[in-house]
């Protein structure tokens, strides 16, 4: 499902963000990517989500060779995965329903199908009653759940989340992690980048730790 093979990423400077990173993640796994700030977590997240390309090495996700993919292919790849950000990245001018519907509309789904799928996923994240509201009218936890609903509505094979609980208190963080585990139990591969080691310890999942741009631990 996810394959990193001898991946290097060097930014001008030069800054070596990733050095010889190799890892393999199977379908249906739940992975925590941990590490201190500046360790290379975000760079690895960017590679995984098709937001950046490696300087050398191979990155394959959900059947796409992201090392060679062009702009148009990247757009199609992004439709096959779900991405959740720490700052939610919701469209302020659209309602909860419209935000969640965006990935389906982009895929050209029919309006009836869009309505049914959006209502289903909002029901799953417990926000069906917030459907006509705008993001600014929601709490941080609710906004993150909308973002997760948007990432899952098109039933992606992989869900990639960058610090999804970074802006939330511990109770809300727990809720979000429960939701991600539920999604994982339905067969979706979940990849969560976080610096919250307490959160990781409470869940017995595979943990990959990155330090100085290299894999320091994988258990």
């Amino acid at each position: 499902m996810i394959l990193f093979s001898h991946v290097y990423k060097t930014y001008p400077g030069p800054t070596h963000a990733l050095r010889d990173v190799s890892l393999e993640i199977d379908k249906g796994e739940f992975i925590f990517l941990t590490g201190p700030s500046g360790a290379g977590k975000t760079t690895l997240f960017r590679m995984l989500s098709g937001f950046d390309k490696p300087s050398s090495g191979d990155v394959r996700v959900a059947g796409y060779d992201l090392t060679k993919a062009r702009s148009g292919e990247i757009a199609h790849f992004r439709r096959r995965i779900g991405v959740v950000f720490q700052d939610f990245r919701l469209l302020k001018g659209r309602t909860v329903f419209e935000n969640v519907a965006v990935p389906l509309e982009i895929r050209g789904e029919r309006p009836g199908q869009v309505r049914r799928r959006v209502e289903d996923i909002l029901e799953q994240v417990g926000l069906a009653y917030k459907s006509p509201q705008f993001p600014e009218q929601l709490s941080g936890g609710e906004q993150q759940r909308v973002a997760i609903a948007r990432a899952l509505v098109h039933q992606p094979g992989v869900l990639i989340a960058d610090e999804p609980t970074g802006n939330l208190d511990s109770a809300l963080s727990g809720e979000i992690m429960d939701l991600l585990e539920k999604v994982n139990a339905q067969g979706t591969t979940v990849f969560v980048a976080t610096h919250d080691l307490g959160l990781v310890k409470r869940r017995s999942k595979r943990q990959i730790e990155i330090r100085g741009g290299q894999i320091a631990m994988d258990r």
């Binding site: 757009a75 992004r78 990245r89």
Partner: peptide
Amino acid sequence: RDEIEILELVGATQ
């Protein structure tokens, strides 16, 4: 600008 970026994130073509 945000709108354009988010649409890119969810896989909208140019």
